[in-house]
Amino acid sequence: MKAVLLGATGATGKEVLELLLQDSNYDKVDIFVRRTVALQHDKLNVHVIDFDAPETWGHLVTGDVLYSCLGTTLKAAGSKEAQWKIDYDYQYEFAKRAQENGIPNYVLVSASNASPDSFFFYSKMKGKLEEAVKALGFPKIVIMRPPILVRENSERTMEVIGVKVLRFFNRLGLLRSQKPMETKRLAEAMIKSVQTLPQGEHTIEEQAILEV
């Protein structure tokens, strides 16, 4: 099998990439990045692209499954418009090209409480992306809505604080459905979902991800 990975340099994407390179089910792994990465592997093919020029790379999005882990923060992006471009526009364009090129499986990292009708910008953006990619008609689409993630060396201040707060309540036996999840556990579930879930649409919430 051949995997296509978007967001390979992020916390979850790095975990997905490492697992894919170790997985005997995959003999090729293509990643699409803005800048050259140092990692080399016999299975790995690195495409350094201009995300704003899909006409130059769209034909390269081919394989058996697209794993989409791309995302940023409002602080890193600098504005809501810039974050929308990365979290919505780029991901949708990749999904669209993948579907047009016949990739049958699509696995997307979304967010807890994602909803196109949400009052909150981030949740609304993620919800609108979910609706847009589902409309593309992949034979199998898996949308993961993880709880707050535990990222190694995270620079997301509010996320780090949130993890500490939730872990405190978890120790008291509270808010267990929102227990923080390590990015490696999410990555494992993403890859496993392609093998275990039947065709169709699957939206998997929080701790249910660990049961895939």
Rank of each mutant, 00 (worst) to 15 (best):
G10R: 00
F51L: 12
L210M: 12
L60M: 14
E152I: 09
L136S: 14
G200V: 11
M181E: 04
G102K: 15
D30C: 07
G63Y: 03
I141S: 10
V109W: 01
Q207Y: 09
M158H: 08
A187F: 01
A76I: 07
H202F: 03
K134A: 06
K164H: 08
D42E: 12
S79W: 03
I31G: 10
F138N: 06
N170P: 08
D50C: 08
K164G: 03
E15G: 05
A38L: 12
S110F: 00
T73M: 04
K192S: 11
L70M: 12
E182H: 14
L174D: 06
L129R: 00
Q207H: 14
T72M: 09
A3V: 06
L174K: 09
I86E: 11
Y67V: 02
L210W: 12
L129G: 01
K28Y: 14
L186H: 01
V194Q: 05
F168V: 12
V61I: 14
K179T: 09
A135M: 02
F51T: 05
V37D: 07
P139Q: 14
F120T: 04
G7L: 00
A135Q: 05
H47Q: 10
R151Q: 15
Y26I: 04
R151P: 12
F51N: 04
P147M: 05
G102W: 09
K140R: 10
N25A: 10
S24Y: 04
V46G: 05
A208I: 11
K126M: 00
S115W: 00
E155C: 11
T9P: 00
N45F: 14
G10Q: 03
L74A: 03
E152N: 15
P139M: 06
K28V: 13
V107T: 08
R97T: 14
Q99S: 13
I209Y: 03
E100W: 03
V4N: 13
V107N: 05
E100S: 11
G71T: 06
P146M: 05
E130Y: 00
G71N: 04
S177M: 13
P139K: 10
A98Y: 09
E152G: 15
S115M: 02
N105S: 15
D87G: 06
R97C: 11
I209T: 09
V107Y: 06
S123E: 05
